[in-house]
Write a protein that binds this DNA or RNA. Structure first.
Lengths: 243, 243
DNA sequence: CGGCTACTTGAATACTTTCAATCCGCGTGG
DNA sequence: CCACGCGGATTGAAAGTATTCAAGTAGCCG
C-alpha cells in the first residue's frame, strides 16, 4: 500500500500547516517508500548509522533507551504524523531506539538528501527548528515530571497528554481513546516499578478518575484528574509542518 | 564592558566551528549589547513574552521550571557559550526560567530580527537545527537518569558531565573544576530531597570517589565514578556554532 | 558579637521496590 | 470441548529507600 503525499490523510488535519504547492512537491520527492511492520518491532535502533527518515502514518510507537543493567526508559510516545529518525538524517547516527507498539505503517523519506531539500526550502527548515524548540519544552515537562512529581501525577499526566495528542489528531473523542501500552510500558515511561504502578492504577480506578482496560483509556473525571496531575494542557503545539 | 564579536574569547575555542567572514558579520550585526548581572538573578522568566536572545559569555546559570506546589526542577546547567532564550526569539514566548548561579555577563542578541538572519544564512540555520537535535539526546539521557537511575548515579553523572563540558571550554583541567551549585540546586537537578542528596554526597566522599567543597568539584577516582554512574561520555557535541 | 545562610545529622514516617505467588484470558493441540 | 501453557495483570508481605520534621553546627559578613 503506497500512499502518495497528495492523498495523505494526515496532511489535511487542522494541526498541520498547509503546504505550498512547491513544498508539497518537494516533500513528495522525498518519499521513497511506504512500509508496514508488526507490533513489538524495532523501527530504528540505538547506535544505528545511516538509518532512514520516517513519518509514522498509522499505529503507535515509542522512543526508548536501554540502560546498562537491563532497564528501559521510554522517552516519548510516537503517534501518527510524528517524525522518526531526524537525527539519522541530519547527524548520521541515532542515539535512541524506536519500537512499534501496534502494527504500524510508515512513510520512508529517503528519496532525496534531506539537507539538500532543507537548503532549498528555508521555511521548512525554520518550521523544523521551531518544532524542535517546542519539543524541548515537552521534554522539560517530562523531566520535571520524573524529577519532582508523585506517581499519581506522573500517570495522570501521561494519560491526559496522550489523550489530548490523540484528540488533536482526531483519533479520540468523548472520554475514551485507544491506549495500547502494557503495564511495563507505562512503568518504563513514568519511572516506576510495574508493581507500584499497578497499585497506583488501581487507586486511580477506585477513585473513579480514570482506568485502562482492554487497551483503551477511559477518563471518568477529567477536571479532577487535571487538577491532581497538575496538567496544564498548554504543552501541545498549535500547528506544525508534516514531513 | 562591551565585547565585539571579533574579539570574542569563546569563538576561537576548538569546540566551536569557525565562522565565515560573512557569518561573523551577520552575528556581529545581531549583537546589541553586553550586560552583567549578579548571582541568583533571573535572566529570563517563564511565561515572558518578547524576551531577548542571549549568549552566556561568562559565569554559570541554570534553566529551571517552578512546579505547582512550590518545587523546582533544574532542567539543565547553562555554561559559557550556551544560548539563552532561543524560544523567545523563534516562538515569541519562553516556558522556562533561567537564573544566574554566579555573576554573569551576557551578549544580548537583539540588533536584528533573528529569523531574517536565519533566512539569509541557511548554514547557520542548519547548524542550529543540528544542535537542537543533538541536545534532544542530552535531554533523553537526563530523562533516563531521573526515571531509572539511583541517586549515586544521578549525582555522579551530573558531576562527570559538567566536568567534561567545562573541560571542553578549557575551564577545567586535571581533576578539579569550579562547581558553584549549592546543595539545593543539586537536589533540584537530580530529583532528590536535599537531605538525601547530602547523605549520598557524604557516601561519595567517604568512598573517595568525588567531593564538592568550597564551590569546587574534585574527582578523585574518575574510572570508578564513570563505571558507577554508567557515564558514557559520548553525550557531548563535538563541534557546533556559536551565536 | 549577633544574625544570616548554608550545611549536616537524627529519628520517625512514608513511600517504593523486590520477591514470591496467584490469577486470568486466550490460543493450541489433544 | 477442554486441559495446558503462556504472557500479562494483580496481590501480599518483607526489605529497602527516600522524605519530612526537627534540631544543631559552621562559616561569613556587617
Amino acid at each position: 500500500m503506497h500512499v502518495p503525499c497528495i492523498d495523505c490523510r494526515l496532511r489535511t488535519r487542522a494541526c498541520y500547516r498547509p503546504f505550498s504547492t512547491d513544498e508539497l512537491a518537494a516533500v513528495a520527492s522525498l518519499k521513497a517508500d511506504h512500509v508496514t511492520l508488526p507490533a513489538k518491532h524495532d523501527i530504528v535502533r540505538e547506535g544505528e548509522v545511516g538509518g532512514a527518515l520516517y513519518t509514522l502514518y498509522e499505529g503507535w510507537a515509542f522512543r526508548y533507551a536501554r540502560l546498562s543493567g537491563g532497564g528501559r526508559q521510554i522517552l516519548d510516545l510516537v503517534l501518527p504524523g510524528d517524525i522518526i529518525g531526524l537525527s539519522s538524517a541530519l547527524l548520521g547516527t541515532i542515539r535512541h531506539s524506536v519500537q512499534s507498539l501496534t502494527p504500524v505503517s510508515l512513510c520512508v523519506l529517503g528519496g532525496y538528501p534531506l539537507t539538500e531539500l532543507l537548503r532549498r526550502h528555508i521555511d521548512l527548515t525554520l518550521d523544523l527548528l521551531r518544532w524542535r524548540v517546542e519539543e524541548e519544552h515537552r521534554a522539560d515537562v517530562r523531566l520535571a515530571l520524573l524529577g519532582r512529581r508523585k506517581p499519581l501525577q506522573r500517570i495522570g499526566y501521561l494519560m491526559l497528554e496522550t489523550f489530548d495528542r490523540l484528540r488533536r489528531l482526531e483519533l479520540a473523542e468523548g472520554t475514551m481513546c485507544p491506549f495500547p501500552l502494557q503495564r511495563q510500558h507505562i512503568a518504563d515511561a513514568t519511572g516506576l516499578s510495574m508493581i507500584h504502578l499497578n497499585r497506583t492504577l488501581t487507586k486511580l480506578r477506585d477513585d473513579k478518575l480514570a482506568r485502562i482496560e482492554n487497551k483503551m483509556l477511559i477518563i471518568y473525571d477529567r477536571r479532577r484528574l487535571v487538577e491532581l496531575a497538575g496538567y496544564g494542557g498548554k504543552e501541545l503545539i498549535t500547528q506544525r509542518m508534516l514531513l
